[in-house]
Nucleic acid binder design. Structure first.
Lengths: 106, 106
DNA sequence: CTTCTTGCTACATAATACGTAGCGATTGCC
DNA sequence: GGCAATCGCTACGTATTATGTAGCAAGAAG
């Protein structure tokens, strides 16, 4: 039987990866098939190539992305996270509504 | 009918918030009830108080957290994200298994 | 009064991201 | 062959952000 701190270690590691700038965005932009380095960069608002390459290296290292002859694409493992990402997208719409209801500009 | 770029704007904003260091961790640590500033700091591996306060300000500003006399706690809106967070936790366990299967130390 | 603990700030240092330029390696195309 | 265009990616100087330690002002307890 695992202790609480032990059973929560992988999620900490996940938060550490997802909590880096551009990581969620990169994953999101690859949801509809592979993109080349330059395509991906264009989708990500012309992110600096230095950082993009650092993130791609990290995501390959952590088995979340792989590079094929068609470009970068999510691994089978990461694709299982798809529903979670779409749940985030749906929630974010409610969030945006709440914020405008409180007088913030989204 | 909204265009694709429009309908994906809130999720971009969400990624921008969640993609900041410590944000996911802070949200996670508050999942079981409110914590005071110093408690939260202790849970978050003694994060620097400067950054913690910046993040708390951001999360209050974006209606994700609120501070009560018992400490900081998620808003009703953020609590709806709970299942998503637990889905992330569950997925991260599979992720960890895959990584050890490939010879990485988790 | 003194002594705690609290939320939080100041400030100097370290780490990280940015943006522009451009290199070396392909890929057509003539 | 040669030439131009495009590719993934790196170099490097600047700007932004995080870290860590110290400690302040305010409130509670005695």
């Amino acid at each position: 039987m695992a202790k609480l701190t032990e059973s929560s270690r992988p999620v900490m590691a996940l938060f550490e990866v997802l909590g880096q700038k551009w990581v969620l965005r990169i994953i999101w932009e690859l949801r509809n098939g592979p993109l080349t380095f330059r395509e991906l960069r264009a989708q990500c608002d012309e992110i600096s190539p230095t950082v993009l390459n650092q993130r791609l290296a990290l995501l390959k290292e952590t088995l979340l992305l792989e590079s094929t002859d068609e470009g970068y694409k999510p691994t089978a493992l990461l694709e299982e996270l798809g529903p979670v990402l779409y749940a985030l997208r749906d929630w974010s719409n409610m969030w945006a509504e709440t914020r405008v209801a409180h007088g913030h500009d989204v």
